[in-house]
Every structure is written in structure tokens, then in C-alpha cells.
Amino acid sequence: MIDEAAFDELRSFGDDFLVELVGQFTEETDALLRQLRESFDAGDTTAVGRIAHNVRGSAGQLGGRALASACDRVERNAITGDPTGRAIDLRAVELEYGRLRLALAERLTFVGVAP
């Protein structure tokens, strides 16, 4: 679920940094996924692509490859796919984000710092 090498490098900056970073990531991504859903419902595929791109970048930095891949698919379909938006799978993004949040919380617990 999490790229261990990426996570370990982030951990090298200290446990306080890691806890703050995960909190910042979840706060930022919670807001972005709300905007993603609202943009999708409004038929704004340009905004859908831009937001998915943003989440892809930060998810990859925290080692969340599956979420980054789901965002990549949304971004590509938003830019080049079906203009009705039927090919845009927001559920996959939301599902992978939930999994990543859980995995990050478990990793923080495992390394002995509170999420």
C-alpha cells in the first residue's frame, strides 16, 4: 500500500515532521476530494483534471502509488476521454484515498508516533 522507501526517507526528517506532514496531507486531500466531486457533478472536467493532477503529485510523495495511479487515470480521462465524464472513476480515487489514510495511520502507530 505504501512505498516503504519513500516513507522511510520522510521518516528520516523526524517523527514530529512525519506526523505533521500526514496531518497536512489528509487535511489538504480531504478538501481537494470534496472539490473534485463538486467539479465532477458540475461537469467541469478541466477542474477535475487539475485537481486529480494535484492529488496525484502529493500522493506519490507520501508513497501512495495506488492513489496516484487512480488519480492519473482520472486526469487522463478528464483531459482526453469521454466528455460526458462517464469514464471518470472518482470512486476509485476515493477508495484508494481511504486505504492510504488507513495505511498511513497504521504506519505511524507502527513506528510509535500517534497519528
Binding site: L10, F13, F17, E20, L21, Q24, F25, E28, T29, N54, G57, S58, Q61, L62
Partner: peptide, 17 residues
Amino acid sequence: ADDSTTTLAIASAGLEQ
């Protein structure tokens, strides 16, 4: 400069270190 505060935090940590 990056619109992701998560990315800013990670890049800043590496540069400041």
C-alpha cells in the same frame, strides 16, 4: 512554488536539512 502544501513541506524539509 507549488500549489500542494504537502509537496512544499517535503521539498522544504530536504532543502533545509
